[in-house]
Nucleic acid binder design. Structure first.
Lengths: 240, 240
DNA sequence: CGACACATTGAATTTTGTCAAGACCTGTGG
DNA sequence: CCACAGGTCTTGACAAAATTCAATGTGTCG
């Protein structure tokens, strides 16, 4: 939202995303949540921050680490609806209950802010609007993935999502044709990936094995993958 | 359309939030967009309001009618990502381009507002935050549908969305056991429904025929359906 | 009436899921 | 250092679900 970016970008300094690695988060020049009060907590990996159905009292900003939001059906089927990165805000609630469970994927620092503070600040409102708009765009793309993409396209899209500046519709291709590799860390188990992509764990595993067999990726550890040919992978996302 | 417009004006509290007062889709809960300036236009059914990729210059509020937002893959696959109702706002953009195409399903009245006017009003910001939060919740539920539900569950969920105050996780059941019927108008072709539910037109048609055969619904016209037993249908949504 | 778009149905095919082993990795304790 | 226990992950065979392709119906509008 250009009109928001202008203001926020100038009024507050950009903030370096903590946590090295993925660097996937596009540079979001948000004002830090901290300037509005509240407190920061440290969570271990796989800790629940709140459960779907809990009374919504706080808003959260992910300072470092990774958080997923998911919903469960009564029979145990799970859908991971968002995977959040540093700078993202979560805990929005249309009713007075959280509509998803929030759980860390890896150890994370999270800043919390009482919901009652939100109405007061126009700055904060603008920040929220911008963040929500961005998340909405991601959700739209994810709906395409879930509704219309094959298993291979889903996994390829997922991997490409972890390569900064590549994989979108507007991807420009490799900067250097001869050296189009990249290392990524998933920070997610096969089960979490499957629940995010709307597949089963076995299907995810099979697709990964297949990409390996075809020489497109190398699996160093289950959650650490080297992409030999980013561009080939990009061709498999359904965007081209 | 008659029933929907009536209901929406009075009690319909958002596509999927039974009562609850979340009520974002209730036009009366907020100052109309009109009080912030801009103009209202009338669109015929199946008119494009803007295309994915167009420069994002305006925000829109649906006053009456129905609008869908969809995305296309290069090979023609389409995913309808949102179906909007009166009171909903659309045209948000995280970058400076619209990320979806917006098209009316039926003839609609739409109020437009220049994006530059948005910064000025704190009240408008609040309205946007509220509306975005609600749409996000709907998108989360839709992700569950697309990622984890069977064809029957998807169609049942879709039909239940159109019954005010029923079909959510917390659905209370029929007010009157002996008379649990309801008439709905879809305002969508089979193709649009299929693209919304992540299915093919044939699968949607087969599921509808099957529900008909089992005496759960009656198809008066392709887009006008009587639900004989709302509660039975509700049992098929995957929420129970 | 006839043309056209939309919807339905059936049969064959493809994709993904299910179930059941088996392999691998990692940390623990002998 | 090795064995092994308990996860997680991978693989294979089979089943189920949904898609594809090809007719066939149905309704609307000139």
């Amino acid at each position: 939202m250009a009109y928001l970016e202008r203001e926020l970008g100038t009024q507050f300094g950009g903030r370096n995303s903590p946590g090295a690695g993925a660097g996937v988060a596009d540079p979001k020049a948000y004002a830090s949540f901290a300037s509005f009060g509240g407190k920061t907590s440290k969570y271990d990996g796989h800790s629940v921050i709140y459960f779907e159905g809990d009374a919504a009292r706080r808003l959260y900003e992910l300072s470092s680490g990774t958080v997923m939001l998911f919903k469960l059906l009564p029979d145990g089927r799970r859908q991971v609806v968002e995977v959040l990165r540093p700078g993202d805000i979560f805990g929005f609630s249309a009713a007075d209950e959280y509509d998803c469970t929030a759980e860390t994927l890896i150890s994370s620092e999270i800043h919390e802010l009482d919901l009652r503070l939100v109405d007061g600040s126009a700055e904060l409102q603008r920040k929220l609007t911008k963040c929500l708009t961005n998340q909405m765009k991601v959700l739209h793309e994810h709906a395409v993935l879930l509704g219309r993409k094959s298993a291979v396209e889903r996994v390829a899209s997922f991997l490409m999502y972890l390569v900064p500046g590549r994989g979108g519709t507007e991807c420009v291709g490799p900067a250097d044709e001869t050296n189009d590799g990249f290392d990524i860390e998933l920070h997610m188990t096969r089960q979490e990936i499957a629940d995010y992509l709307g597949l089963t764990i076995e299907t995810v595993s099979r697709v990964v094995s297949d990409l390996k067999r075809r020489g497109i990726i190398r699996v160093d550890r289950a959650d650490r993958i080297h992409l030999h040919k980013v561009c080939s992978l990009c061709q498999m996302t359904g965007f081209h």
